[in-house]
């Protein structure tokens, strides 16, 4: 079992109920796409899976760690097995790509290795290989503030590839990429998960990208699960119902809308969660 959410509700400090009565589970190795209108609760759901937020109601068992790990060390051990691709890559501009990728293993490295690696990167081939998989091998030693938004997003993906987590959580992983690259990147993530038997949960804005690549689709609306179906059973009417109020058109790759304000709100939520 990769995770089991049982009646999970999540209320933010300002009283907003982001999630209500979510019951969802996945076997190890499943690949799930979360879709739904913006503000539906996809990011909140991923935050609960990523242990950033503990549910206010219900239980969340992640990677056989049981509900709520007992100690800080146990939580850290669990988190080292979860890799998150963020909507806006959380990488300091002045850091070099190699360091940003190596940071993926901080949860597993002893402290001395982490600190020494700041002075001289201790696993250049590893970082290079991860960057190579997202077509950025030539940017190995480039500073992140010299990369474009799309390149930076791919560095974030390379970090998770390098981390080799058992559970990959991806929050709009390809929103900054052009359609062709987005498709290639989603396939790369799926291939990586498949090869290592890891579970992948990705929230996607583009419905076609989700249905075309993932076996299981979970529709989220207003903090609840609207449907949870194999990709083949998700029909157009269902989607229209999910996105009702978005202007009648389904969000697809070809004209991926970019919701800056939404990204900012999500950022704020993450910040509140762990700091």
């Amino acid at each position: 079992m990769a995770f089991r959410l049982n009646g999970v509700g999540l209320a933010y400090a300002n009283g907003f109920d982001a999630l209500k009565g979510i019951t969802l589970q996945a076997a190890q190795g499943e690949r799930i796409a979360l879709i739904g209108p913006s503000g539906a609760g996809k990011t909140s759901l991923l935050s609960v899976l990523g242990t950033a937020w503990a549910p206010t109601v219900g239980t969340a068992e992640i990677l056989d760690a049981g509900d709520r790990p007992r100690s800080a060390a146990a939580l850290a051990r669990l988190r080292a097995r979860i890799g998150t691709i963020h909507q806006s890559p959380p990488i300091p501009g002045r850091q070099r790509a190699v360091t940003a990728v190596l940071a993926g293993r901080l949860g597993r490295w002893p402290a001395w290795k982490s600190l020494a690696s700041l002075i001289y990167p201790l696993d250049i081939p590893g970082a290079g290989a991860a960057l190579d998989r997202v077509d950025l091998a030539d940017k190995l030693f480039a500073r992140c503030d010299q990369l474009s938004g799309g390149q930076l997003q791919r560095v974030g993906i390379a970090r998770v590839l390098y981390q080799q987590p058992d559970l990959i959580l991806a929050d709009e992983p390809v929103s900054a990429l052009d359609p062709a690259l987005a498709l290639a990147t989603i396939r790369l993530l799926i291939a990586d998960a498949e090869a290592r038997g890891a579970t992948l949960v990705a929230s996607l804005h583009a419905v076609d990208l989700a249905i075309g690549n993932f076996s299981r689709i979970v529709g989220v609306k207003a903090g609840r699960i609207a449907f949870d179906l194999p990709a083949g059973e998700v029909g157009i009417p269902l989607l229209h119902e999910l996105y009702a109020g978005e202007g009648g058109e389904l969000p697809v790759q070809a004209h991926e809308p970019h919701f800056l304000s939404q990204a900012a709100a999500n950022d704020a939520a993450t910040r509140a969660a762990c700091c």
């Binding site: 990523g50 242990t51 950033a52 850290a76 051990r77 669990l78 988190r79 080292a80 097995r81 979860i82 890799g83 998150t84 963020h86 806006s88 959380p90 990488i91 300091p92 940071a103 993926g104 901080l106 949860g107 597993r108 402290a111 982490s114 981390q163 987590p165 950022d267 993450t270 910040r271 969660a273 762990c274 700091c275």
Partner: peptide, 13 residues
């Protein structure tokens, strides 16, 4: 804060 948070969520001490 995002960068540090993300690393802590990936289990970094």
């Amino acid at each position: 804060p995002a960068a540090g948070c993300a690393l802590r969520l990936a289990g970094a001490p």
